[in-house]
């Protein structure tokens, strides 16, 4: 199977299908729908790669990212969501999820824009 992510980020390939999502609302929904084990596994694999991923993607406009790079970026966005679940909420994540789901994300600066 061909690589879905830039070279150096092979460790994150198994997470692409679940966590490479195009909008903030979709990422928030996946955070709530995923299991504690899924979140823990993704956080453990992705958090150590945050610095290197952003360093690999920085230096050009977001619109200029190639598809593989865009997928990596989408994973890092999802990491932002999952990090809050794993690192901050911890055992409270389960009870906070239904409350959080009441706050509907209607627009996000990071949502992938369709070409004009």
């Amino acid at each position: 199977m061909s690589a879905q992510l830039p070279s150096g980020f092979e460790a994150l390939e198994p997470f692409v299908a679940t966590w490479a999502l195009a909008t903030t609302a979709e990422r928030a929904a996946m955070r709530s729908a995923s299991s504690p084990e899924q979140r823990a596994a993704f956080f453990a694999a992705a958090a150590p790669l945050l610095d290197s991923a952003l360093a690999a993607l920085d230096g050009r406009a977001m619109a200029d990212l190639a598809p593989q790079e865009r997928r990596l970026m989408d994973l890092m966005y999802s990491l932002a969501h999952v990090a809050l679940a794993v690192e901050i909420q911890g055992p409270d994540e389960i009870k906070s999820a239904p409350l959080r789901d009441r706050l509907h994300i209607t627009r996000s600066a990071t949502d992938r824009r369709t070409a004009a």
Partner: peptide, 28 residues
């Protein structure tokens, strides 16, 4: 401004999620 680069864009996502987590705790 639009997201200048990946780092800024990531920070914006984290910032939004963080404040939403806090507000969710208040609602109930």
């Amino acid at each position: 401004g639009e997201d200048a680069d990946a780092s800024e864009s990531f920070a914006r996502e984290y910032s939004l999620c963080q404040i939403r987590d806090i507000h969710a705790e208040d609602i109930d």
